[in-house]
Design a binder for these strands. Structure first.
Lengths: 126, 126
DNA sequence: TTACAGTTCTACGCCACGTAGAACTCACTC
DNA sequence: GAGTGAGTTCTACGTGGCGTAGAACTGTAA
């Protein structure tokens, strides 16, 4: 499926964290104050609206974003929740492994105690 | 870290499945019979050795492959096991999630019964 | 009917990756 | 010790994804 670029990722994060009333312009504003990963001497000029729109279109094409075209400032929203998306990515990575159980073993070895407890609960008894 | 291309992935798979005696040439031969993902009317000509070497160098730079330069046909081997590598990728995906437990919940919901049992065992009782 | 916010189209630069030729090097052979 | 050939390094080209945005178009509100 999809590996996202840095900006695409930032846009998705915003859509996930502020699911309401998202227009390209709002996103632009929010993004302009983003703590960029590589913000060494970062250009602080806000992104152009077209930039955000391009990214949104690409995300739409990838099936991650949906937009309402009926209203005029289009509304953009994420198709899936971040948790779902992340879980899907993890499954995608795992899926191609012929040695799934070995992978799971290593994976499990790294989660925190609290998370392990949660997992135990989720896996149910018996 | 690393998303691998199609050929890079194929090379890593070979190194993982045939850990012994790996030279660029051997890899080239093995790769030439690979069932390529997009093998619609695929070019069947074997890869050039230099192609494989380039890929190996890139994988070395990425830290996924190690080579012995002391012997003449250099020997190439994967630095980590595939299971370790896959688990690392999964952790990388999970790591950036602020809602780890929700992700884990969805993730757990999809593994097979057998794997769930394995996981339960791995998580240890109490 | 005009003016402006919002949208689409097009494009440029960069970098990763698949691909490989050209040139170089090292270990044998005579 | 010069030759030769397998193996290695250097360099590079084409493609495609992504960050970025101008130019041109459109729809709504005044």
């Amino acid at each position: 499926m999809a590996t996202l670029g840095e900006l695409e990722r930032a846009v998705m994060d915003l859509l996930w964290e502020h699911p309401e009333a998202m227009t390209a312009n709002t996103l632009r504003d929010l993004l302009s104050s983003r703590p960029s990963a590589a913000d060494q001497s970062r250009d602080t000029r806000p992104l152009a609206v077209t930039t955000v729109l391009t990214v949104l279109s690409r995300l739409e094409k990838k099936g991650l974003v949906e937009r309402e075209r009926s209203i005029r400032p289009h509304r953009y929203k994420a198709v899936t929740s971040r948790a779902d998306h992340t879980a899907e990515l993890m499954l995608e990575v795992l899926g191609s492994a012929p040695d799934r159980e070995a992978v799971l073993a290593r994976f499990i070895g790294t989660v925190s105690d609290g998370e392990a407890a949660t997992l135990r609960k989720l896996l149910g008894g018996h």
